Simulated scan of single mutants.
Amino acid sequence: MRKSLRHLIAGVSGAAIIASGVAITATPASADAAFSSDAVAFVDAFLPPSGSSNIDFSVKLTGAYATNGQPDKKVWVHFTKDDTASSITWVNGTVTQPSAVTTVPSPNEVVVKGVLPVSTNDVASDKWRLELALTETSATTAPTSGWTKATDFTVAAATRVTNFDIDPSTVTLKSGTSVDVGIRAIVEKHGNEVFKDARVESDETSDYYSLHTGFEADDKTYYDFVAMDSSTATGRWQAKLTFTRGTKTYEFVKSFNVTKGSSGKAKSKVTFAVSPTKVKKGKSVKMYGTVYRGYTSWGPWKKKILKLYFKKKGTKTWKFAGYIGANNSGKFTKTVKPKYDGYWRVGAFATSVTLGKWSAYKYVDVR
């Protein structure tokens, strides 16, 4: 078992010495400033799934200010990504130095914050080590000795998305029909990431389709699809999966193209909602929305008969679940008792003068 806090070596600037987790007070050689015996605190030490990022840390500095309120010492940090290597490589971090104060606080201490630069190419492990040092405030380069506080820490991997595919990779839309576009990915989660958002969106217009933020039965396979028809904007599109971890946000993107021919039919669209989205087995949910049609402006698609479909979680097949009739305002509603977790959607199918359209689908959690 690796120790979370290494033995500390007193440097030339003077500091507390830590041995086997017990603080032993040492008299500083030339200054009062010293690092607290508390371990360095990390907000969340993990590698970014792509590109570069920072690991945030903080440490308490005691005796931080001289009697005139000026910082007593300058803080330096460096770290290694493998402290078991025969030849250790140290990388400098960045510290936000204490600012001058008009009144010295009591107790005379301040929390110093800093960052350690990392990238997706680094290796997640428990072999990382940080060291801190104090110098005179006038120093302009990091010291070559006198590192007075050290701590081992573990850096975790972050969520990664692999095998990100769009099927078909180029979407060709045909008049009067829709094309199911599948979005598939393998999501490797590491830690407390939150699956925040999923969508398919046009790069050139405001057109987009919302996707669900759930996984298949294995809890790592992501699958969803949208039904695109000739009312869909052409050009470059992208599927985007968004994750957050703490205050940081990461987006995984897969691009594809949408093309189509011309059509003289009116467009249609369907809004769809479910309430509630979490329900006990045997209880009912309300499914409702509005269906529209139009050439240049939207109006209600009066008395339109829509079809309701259901796809059980963990499967890929949509099954017909009944009809829903719209009124003269294009509004429709239906009460359903779901038996299984899964996805629901409604379809307004094409006629000789109007294009068909699928609604976005909604997930219902049956408990």
Rank of each mutant, 00 (worst) to 15 (best):
S297A: 13
V270T: 06
G235V: 09
K267E: 04
S263E: 02
G282Q: 01
N257V: 14
P276D: 02
S230V: 15
F225I: 09
S275G: 12
L241R: 01
K303S: 11
K240P: 00
Y295C: 10
R236F: 05
D229H: 00
K278D: 05
D224G: 12
D229P: 00
Y223E: 10
T296F: 12
R245H: 13
S275V: 05
H212L: 00
K286S: 11
V274L: 13
F215I: 14
S230W: 07
T249C: 00
K302E: 13
Y288A: 10
K280M: 11
K269E: 09
T221N: 14
F272W: 09
K260E: 03
V253A: 02
K303H: 09
M287E: 02
F215H: 12
N257R: 12
S255V: 04
F272S: 08
K260G: 00
K240V: 09
K283L: 03
T277S: 13
T244H: 07
K278N: 05
D218G: 13
T259D: 00
S231Y: 10
K278T: 15
K248N: 11
R245L: 11
T296W: 13
K248H: 13
W301V: 08
S231A: 03
M287W: 01
G299T: 15
K267W: 04
V270G: 02
Y292W: 10
T259A: 03
K269S: 08
K304S: 05
F252A: 05
R293H: 14
K254Q: 05
K286C: 06
K269L: 03
T232C: 00
T277E: 10
K265N: 12
A266N: 15
K302I: 10
A227N: 12
A227C: 12
T221H: 15
E216I: 14
W237D: 08
T232M: 01
S231I: 06
S268L: 08
W298V: 06
G289A: 07
V279R: 02
A266Y: 15
D219P: 07
V291F: 00
A239P: 02
Y288K: 11
F252D: 07
S284P: 03
G282S: 03
G289L: 08
K283W: 02
S284T: 08
S230K: 06
S284W: 05
Y222D: 09
T244S: 13
T259H: 00
F243A: 04
P276E: 04
K240I: 04
K248D: 12
S210P: 10
T232Q: 01
T296C: 07
D229W: 04
A239Q: 05
K286G: 07
S284M: 08
S263N: 00
S230N: 13
F243R: 00
S297T: 15
R236L: 10
Y292M: 06
K304Y: 02
A233I: 08
T296E: 14
A233N: 07
S231V: 05
